[in-house]
Design a protein around this nucleic acid. Sequence first.
RNA 1: GGGGGUGUAACUCAGUUGGUAGAGUAGCGGACUCUUAAUCCGUUUGUCGGGGGUUCGAGCCCCCCCGCCCCUACCA
Length: 496
Amino acid sequence: MSENRQNNNPKQDKPLDGSDQVAVRQAKLDQMRENGVDPFRANWDQTHTSIQAQALLTEDMEDGPEVSVAGRIVAFRLMGKASFLKVLDRDGRIQSYVRKDEIGEEEYAAFKKLDLGDFIGIRGKLFRTKTGEVTVRAKEYRLVSKALRPLPEKWHGLTDNDQIYRQRYLDLIVNEESRERFRTRSQIIREIREFFWDRDFLEMETPMLQSVSGGAAARPFRTHFNALDCDFNMRIALELHLKRLMVGGFDRVFEVGRVFRNEGLSRRHNPEFTMLEAYQAYTDYRGMMELTRSLIQQVSERALGTLQLERNEGDTIDLSGEWREAKYKDLIIDAVGRKDWFDLPKSAKLEKAKELRIEVDPSLEDFEVTNDIFEKVIEHTLIQPTFVTHIPKELCPLAKITEDDSSTIDVFELCINGQEIAPAYSEQNDPAVQRSAFMKQVGEETQELDDDFLLALEHGMPPAGGMGLGIDRLVIFLTKAANIRDTILFPTLRPS
RNA sequence: GGGGGUGUAACUCAGUUGGUAGAGUAGCGGACUCUUAAUCCGUUUGUCGGGGGUUCGAGCCCCCCCGCCCCUACCA
């Protein structure tokens, strides 16, 4: 990739016929250097971006002030004595018009040697073309950075998925929807932060390297710390450390951070993904319900300007107003069509699962069979925002037991777009109950016992509500992405 | 892990019954002072993903391997 083409390339001896585009560009660059022109200038004084420049020329104006723009050449229409080009900067594209009689014969000849993909700076007055497009009429131009490799094809763009993910920069140069999606993602995360700051939360940072990775049941990535000669795990959740902060007295905290789970890849799963978790003292899962709904509504309103999200499937997700609440048990009873479901023996449940055409492993626990029905039959039907409440206590050891029903916990799972987006709990703060819940889990699931966390709980944690939200999945439905990889700039791939 | 699909020029793709590689874009040379995928004339470029096999002959058929995509499984 980086071998010295000037000296080692045997093709250099042959006349350049255009067959090796990189060699042609390299030769142009060498020629420039010989002529004393620096193809990688230290800087260019950019006074306006494309959008800022376009805003200067209002409808009623024929021409406008002088501006200096800069960016990558993404369209190049050369003619004998005048040319049009489009320059891409962080805001978008702007057209420029370059005339031989205005920049001089020599400069124009050099201008025609530029390539698609080169970075250029242009200074000149704004004017409007016959077709009404705001354009910079070049008084001066400079190549500011040479591109040695050509861009993907201009019309079809870049469609090879592997290349889109491995060379994301090409995707971003060529595919506007992609550029727009990641711009929106950044805006979404910014709005999430604003929301919590406005509510007096502190943004905290907790360790990614942990000796015990708790807070969820997932296989961790393991690594080794040489200095201490011991193994560490990458974190799988933020929960247990943020709760330590609650113990410490920071009683409104949140964190947006990467978590790592050593599990499969799919359209909805990437091994590293971005999680939001928030904890607030003196509230409970009902308070988290209001918080979560307001958060998503505010983010959608501000980042997208709407609460009505059209889906690729043709229907619309309506985020406005109050959101539906449904008890887990009611959804199950509805789906299986039996009121006595929870009194049935496991064998009858397995049989019913078969009827519903779900593959269920007979060695599963009773509650796991039920939960399979939830995940495989119900979850994907919950397109409109739905808080699923009163979930069986076996499914989560970190929440408080419901007061009038000891079989369930005070939690909700928010489902939107047929996916679980955000769970929230009334957080368990009784160290003894917490310990026994952990003990039951250890062994059967992969949740690790974190004694240090239990020690913290024994010092007392205020009553609190907590929630977690998978940001990538939020971005999926807010941007109509088809795949989690379209919301992660550099998704995990097999090394090439 | 299982099933299906796919890999051809820098990019997007076509390639017939097995007969020796093609288009558009990009590039190169030329014409052109309002283009919008600019246009017009001329023109270069291939380890057909890799390896093996069948055959007089393989991009095409068979086997093995690799990458990618979809479904499925795993997955709080």
